[in-house]
């Protein structure tokens, strides 16, 4: 296992780390299409969906429920195949028409409802990846896991079970479980969806600190516009089915981000631009009678 470039996550050092971006993890999604059940109901989830993500970029994707956001993420993660186009990771084919989908530790997913194994302790969860891949001995993995947990202030819970933690802590552990694999891309599927406002804003802070320290490419699904603008470098609006990228918003807020920015004029302008675009799609989806597919 190469040395993970997780720097100290203390406020002042995070400032300097803000410029650091991982050298790899560039994604290029080319005219991707996905049709469920082509001979039967023929649901077109994605059509001609293209976007470029540079290495170390934090990209958020928003859109109405039931648009192809999660489908796209599942294809990138290797849970599902695509039916048109291709996806490249650092120029290498990641998902094509000819290859069977295969998940791997180079692009780890953090799930909507959380998927820490409830039957493993926090430390066992965190070390699962490196141990199961055989890249670290259990002892090495334990040391590494403890180190990473303590850097985000979770050093006293390693023997707890996930069920004993708050949802905010669970997500932090899950992100650490992903990062210990030193992935090229981090795929986050509405990870803060079910949280209350307070937990959510604290979780944003932790995620930003981890991002500043590691500079990993992040693909973040959400339907919370404020969250998207606050966290990301680039916010993409996806249309309702068939899904493609309708609009791209470059967020030029400086990093590190802090909560004061939520009230800035730039922020509010960007938000109002997004609200219009997303609202249009939401109404279309609502009228098409889409069921909540999340």
């Amino acid at each position: 296992m190469n040395d993970v470039n997780l720097k100290l996550v203390q406020k002042d050092q995070a400032q300097e780390a803000a410029v650091c971006r991982a050298p790899d993890g560039a994604l290029s999604i080319k005219e991707v299409g996905k049709i469920y059940d082509p001979e039967g109901v023929h649901v077109v989830a994605l059509e001609d969906c293209s976007l470029e993500i540079t290495a170390g970029e934090f990209v958020a994707i928003v859109g109405p429920s039931g648009c192809g956001k999660s489908t796209l993420l599942n294809i990138m993660a290797g849970f599902d195949n695509l039916t048109a186009g291709e996806i490249l990771l650092d120029g290498e084919p990641l998902a094509t028409l000819d290859t069977a989908p295969k998940p791997g530790p180079d692009r780890v997913v953090v799930f909507q409802h959380g998927a820490l194994f409830p039957w493993k302790t926090v430390l066992e969860n965190v070390t699962y990846g490196p141990v199961v891949q055989g890249v670290m001995s259990p002892e090495e993995a334990n040391d590494r896991g403890r180190e990473m947990l303590s850097r985000v202030g979770l050093n006293n819970i390693e023997t707890s079970y996930p069920g004993q933690l708050s949802s905010g802590m669970q997500r932090r552990v899950e992100i650490i479980r992903a990062l210990i694999n030193n992935p090229k891309v981090l795929l986050l599927d509405e990870p803060f969806r079910a949280m209350d406002t307070v937990t959510k804003s604290a979780s944003h802070q932790y995620l930003l600190e981890l991002y500043n320290a590691t500079g990993k490419t992040i693909f973040f699904i959400t339907h919370d516009l404020e969250e998207a603008i606050f966290l990301a470098d680039k916010v993409l609006v996806m249309t309702t089915r068939p899904g493609y990228i309708k609009q791209t918003l470059e967020v030029d807020l400086p990093r590190p981000r802090h909560y004061g920015m939520l009230a800035s004029v730039e922020f509010i302008e960007m938000k109002s631009e997004l609200v219009g675009a997303v609202h249009e799609e939401a109404v279309k989806a609502f009228e098409a009678g889409e069921r909540e597919m999340a």
């Binding site: 530790p105 799930f111 998927a115 820490l116 199961v132």
Partner: peptide, 23 residues
């Protein structure tokens, strides 16, 4: 999602049986 998480983290099909299916 437990199956997906385990596969993401690099578990083989055999490991899934022990690490996810059984518990």
């Amino acid at each position: 999602s437990y199956f997906r998480a385990a596969r993401c983290l690099g578990a083989s099909k055999k490991r899934l049986l022990l690490d996810v299916v059984l518990p």
